[in-house]
Design a protein around this nucleic acid. Structure first.
Lengths: 95, 95
DNA sequence: ATAGTGTGCAACCGACGAGTTGCACATTAC
DNA sequence: GTAATGTGCAACTCGTCGGTTGCACACTAT
């Protein structure tokens, strides 16, 4: 599939956008850690992380018995775009 | 549903992104006209136009026996963002 | 060695989305 | 009026997606 499709498909889910937000704050996290923030099981979070990784927004590295995820450059750029977009929408709604 | 969800949900489908592109060229079009450009039935195109309208990216106006669709301001902005994004991805891939 | 913790994989389920067909209604042309 | 064109609505199929459970494997601590 084309990269654009993968990226927009990944961003279509609000939980995945939230994961991007979390990763932008914490710099790095495991699927188990993120499970504490989201109302779903670890396996569901792991699936979302896999989808984000397919889209090139997230990368993973195994350290010992845990695998830590972090935003890629593209993922960080999208976090910025999303922040800007939310503020843009709020401003438009306010006027 | 939140506006952001509606917008990203609408943009997740490549056919709908293509419809946005077509509308940015033609200024205005009917569902039947767009059917000539896409490998699907008129009703399918009409559904896509409806979800784009829900997301506020497109607006419709009935003129006689046909209803003409055009991009809203938000839709036109997204068409620009998508163009810029495609070029951004191409540039990144080339380097 | 054994228990505890973290992960990955596979199968399953329910819901939703994309697309289709069929038909009824509205508008225009003749 | 009647035929042709454009639209809208409803029901149906089918695939995918988000989420779950269950289990096996990897690593760590004691």
């Amino acid at each position: 599939m084309s990269e654009l499709n993968l990226v927009f498909g990944a961003l279509a889910d609000p939980n995945r956008r939230q994961v991007i937000g979390y990763l932008s704050e914490r710099e790095t996290a495991t699927a188990t850690e993120l499970t504490g923030e989201l109302p779903m099981t670890r396996q569901a979070v792991a699936k979302h992380l896999a989808t984000l990784a397919d889209a090139g927004l997230v990368e993973s590295e195994r350290q010992g018995r845990e695998t830590r995820y972090r935003l890629t450059q593209a993922g960080a750029e999208w976090d910025d775009r999303l922040d800007a977009l939310v503020k843009h929408l709020q401003r438009r709604k306010r006027d």
